[in-house]
Design a protein around this nucleic acid. Structure first.
Lengths: 108, 108
DNA sequence: AGCACCTGCCAATAATTTCTGGCATGTGCA
DNA sequence: TGCACATGCCAGAAATTATTGGCAGGTGCT
């Protein structure tokens, strides 16, 4: 994921997604390796539904991916892992992205 | 402004500030050079009080600065300019910043 | 059967952010 | 004096986001 291929809307989504302390912590918690939701909720000290909501946003922005695994015994565990990304934010990169920013009147 | 010296809270503030289409457009509009608020409001097609609010946030995050000038004739015009910045966002830089993220229970 | 895990979803509330409209101040110029 | 431009601020409405609590389904183990 390179910022040079990001549209303004994608950049905005990435920023909105990362602009939250819980989600930053999730990214940090996922950096050493994948993790499943209940364990992460305990580790971060937040409720499971809340974490799920944050994970959904991270996934929608393409920053994490989910792998539902049905381990040999039949138990279902949903692992989340990080998508490697590198965003460079500067007045220049922002100015370029703004050209492809929609007005927000799209799907209406 | 280098991300290596950013605390988690500062990173979060920068992200929250940039996570808004109007503010991204303000940054883009300011890139060629400084501008005063009424002109920028017309250029961006938003109301002046709204733009002022966004400028205050950008200023609070250290992304822009204001220079109030009392031109020779006595007219007061408030110019805003960009602070050069470069933020590199990746799982690693985020993980490092998270260490210095407060719980949000500070000033209570 | 009953408990401890895992999973998902939804509705209602709380908190935050965005936005509008109005008010007040000042200057210069016809 | 009255209009056009600049500035600032504030209160209230509207929209978005975050958060809680509860419901329901699955598996394995004692």
């Amino acid at each position: 994921m390179r910022e040079s291929e990001l549209t303004g809307d994608q950049l905005l989504q990435a920023l909105s997604t990362l602009a939250n302390p819980h989600r930053l912590r999730v990214v940090a918690a996922l950096r050493p390796g994948r993790q499943y939701v209940s364990a992460m909720a305990r580790q971060l000290g937040i409720s499971r539904p809340l974490l799920q909501m944050h994970l959904r946003k991270l996934q929608a922005a393409g920053l994490v991916t989910a792998q539902l695994e049905l381990a040999d015994d039949g138990k279902a565990v949903n692992y989340y892992s990080l998508t490697p990304f590198a965003l460079h934010l500067s007045p220049d990169t922002i100015a370029r992205a703004v050209h492809t920013l929609s007005d927000g009147e799209e799907g209406r």
